[in-house]
Write a protein that binds this DNA or RNA. Sequence first.
RNA 1: GGCGCCAUGGCCAAGUGGUAAGGCAGAGGACUGCAAAUCCUUCAUCCCCGGUUCAAAUCCGGGUGGCGCCUCCA
Length: 500
Amino acid sequence: MALAIYNTMTRAKEPFEPLVSGKVGLYVCGVTVYDLSHIGHARVYVAFDAVYRFLRQQGYEVTYVRNFTDVDDKIIARATERGEDPLALSARFIEEYHRDMDALGCLRPTLEPKVSTHMPQIIAMIERIIERGHAYVVEGDVYFSIDSYPSYGKLSRCQLDEMRAGERVQVDERKRNPFDFALWKAAKPGEPTWESPWGPGRPGWHIECSAMSCAHLGETFDIHAGGKDLVFPHHENEIAQSEAASGVDYVRYWMHNGFVNVDAEKMSKSLGNFFTIRDVLELYHPLSVRWFLLSTHYRAPINYTERTIEEAAARVYYLYQTLHDLDVALAEVKSTKDGDVVEPEMVEAISQQATAAMEDDFNTALLVSVLSEPLKLINDLLHTKKGRKRAGRLRTMARIREQIRPIFDVIGVGRGEPARILAEMRQRALRRHGLSEEHVLERVAARVAAREARDWAAADAIRDELLAAGVQLMDAAAGTDWRPVFQLVEEGGGAAESEA
RNA sequence: GGCGCCAUGGCCAAGUGGUAAGGCAGAGGACUGCAAAUCCUUCAUCCCCGGUUCAAAUCCGGGUGGCGCCUCCA
């Protein structure tokens, strides 16, 4: 088996062969920094974080570039509204973005170039495009002429004459073709501008990615990624510009992720149906969010609902509870040489299965499912009468611990101190249910007293009361513990739906 | 209107020719004062119609339904 990547350009999975053996150039389109990021953004960067982690794990030297669009209409508009300098505003949201990404456990890219610091490269590329006859200047604007580039449309497979340019937005009369797009926009009053051979102005949106990827990864590089909505026109335009400027192929593998949906509709700023990462992380642990995002293949759409995020949270809780119990058990023993590994075939297949899952177009959904059997076996060996008697149980658990670590490294979930993470998850759950830890602990103590007095009715009443509030009590030999209740059942029964 | 994607059990979700992974929920069982957690068992023929093939959820054609792009968008 070898790594295969679904290439949007060919609409097929292709064996991955880097341009330079052992090295990968990866460019992921970043955000326009004028506001907080939402879960849709989180998906892109978590998905390609897993890609980045896997490529590195496979031994590739990866140059991961992710840009910031810090010069843009929306930034200027927002800054004007607030009476703030546009670059100051974008700098602020770059910080906020980093906070979110760090919280989500996304590794920092190798480079994070900004438009504002790449004007010379952008201008040089535009000059080159003009020289080669693919762009024209109109009153200080520079437009790319798509008619000069015959293979325009090859990524999105659009036939331009059938598309409705101007259907929703007025077409600029000065364009030779309605689909021509701006490489450079002449300055308007009150906007930040940069000097150029065509007068003061600023770059069009698409040119930045071409210029910055070229500057840091070269004229041709391996992987270019982003959301599906960027296929047309953004990436299509990038290809046209870059190849018009360089004369060589731009990108070898195009990867596009599916959307995060709410009620089966794309989550987006313009629809207003978005949840910011910031808000979600108040109620759900970042690792739950990661698990949620990675438990669906990156190209498929994913629905964000209370039910789906709760399910992810429940699963992550199970994972860390298992790891916690395991670590406690292993810490107590001097040696794990207590026999042969139980179910050796399953245990030893874990790493191959994990690699195979990722090699098949980064199938993190499949990867995550590889954990099910080993985690079940650990719990069996840890908690059931039969399991606790099995020879080799300690060795088996220790071996599984080793085998699943590389999976954790790729998904970015499973590492960290389990006790701490479980505590953090409980804190989030308390917040969700509007409870305080003091209150819960007070009720737990009351129940312990009732149980000691063998007053089962009182003990059960307290348990029911907490259960209704969102806290599940668990009695064990060591004492009474609690854990969050996850909302795993569909709410409402539709009883009120079919009233005439 | 053009282009494209998708449709798998109650819910989520893998699977692109060889006879349906995994998770959640449900049911039964072990464990428990009773529970919970945990473990075991159980639970689908893949939207419809037609075709190709020894063999199709997987390929082709035609429907139906949903979504996306064609304005900024991850």
